[in-house]
């Protein structure tokens, strides 16, 4: 069953991977021409006119965009967080509901497999793809950065691991929410909503002290890029929180799915 799940979700995975790598390929190809001395001066002048809050939101106050790695630390990881978050959300919503949507659930339920097995294998297949998307992006960007010049490799790898935490929690949350409905379309809107609302909350939480509390409502707080840039280490609380949240959501999904009416 796991093999089949991996097979049927491969096409979507390939599309999302191509989109993500395509964006980075274009950036890495164009970046050398953008970062000429003259352009960098212009960019630095431009950045000076941005409000401090905005620079903070994109980590531009602690990182310069005069190198490809610098760009990656500011905007690049925002792309990775958003794209892997969207992919994780959509996959989490779809992977269970596809059987109900295609009405193949009646066949699947008739097979000698327990609901626990169905759920765990589907969860695992999705998890493999979420981690693979991030893993391939890490390798691809690493190769591109090697060709672009020197960079702090330890910082790069630590930064690259951060999207895993938010993506897995988004995936688990959408997977859990999918046990409450039969409709894929409904869940698609909810999953994208979770990603974008989380992102907006995270941006606002970094803008001012009065909105800082919003970070507690954003899943992207678990992927604290700023902390990694400043400390060159990952906040272990975030790792722990991600694991705990994912386990809780998976357990809740198991309980819910066992009692779900499949038709």
């Amino acid at each position: 069953m796991l093999k089949r799940e991996l097979k049927i979700n491969f096409k979507t995975f390939a599309i999302w991977t191509s989109i993500l790598l395509g964006i980075f390929l274009v950036v890495f190809l164009l970046y050398p021409s953008i970062v000429s001395d003259q352009n960098i001066e212009m960019l630095n002048e431009m950045i000076k006119i941005f409000p401090e809050e905005m620079l903070k939101a994109f980590n531009m106050d602690i990182s310069s965009i005069d190198t490809a790695f610098g760009w990656l630390k500011t905007e690049g990881f925002v792309f990775i967080l958003l794209i892997t978050g969207c992919y994780a959300g959509i996959l989490g919503s779809n992977i269970l509901l596809k059987e109900e949507n295609d009405q193949t659930i009646e066949y699947l339920n008739g097979l000698p497999v327990s609901r626990t097995e169905i759920l765990l294998k589907k969860y695992l297949a999705g998890l493999i793809y979420v981690l693979s998307l991030i893993g391939i992006t890490i390798i691809f960007n690493y190769a591109c950065l090697l060709l672009s010049g020197d960079f702090n490799q330890k910082q790069y790898f630590l930064l690259s691991l951060t999207p895993i935490f938010s993506s897995i929690v988004i995936y688990s949350l959408c997977f859990f929410l999918a046990t409450f409905t039969h409709k894929t379309k409904k869940m698609l809107g909810i999953s994208l909503g979770i990603v974008f609302v989380s992102y907006v909350f995270q941006i606002f939480s970094s803008i001012s002290e009065s909105t800082e509390f919003l970070k507690y409502f954003s899943i992207f707080t678990l992927s604290d890029i700023r902390y990694v840039i400043e400390n060159i280490s990952i906040n272990y609380i975030n790792i722990l929180l991600s694991i705990i949240l994912s386990i809780i959501l998976l357990s809740a999904s198991l309980v819910r799915y066992k009692h779900k009416e499949l038709i």
Binding site: D102, Q103, T104, Y107, G110
Partner: peptide
């Protein structure tokens, strides 16, 4: 088990 409407992996 044979359901009234057969839906399989297309």
């Amino acid at each position: 088990y044979l359901p009234s409407e057969v839906n399989l992996y297309e």
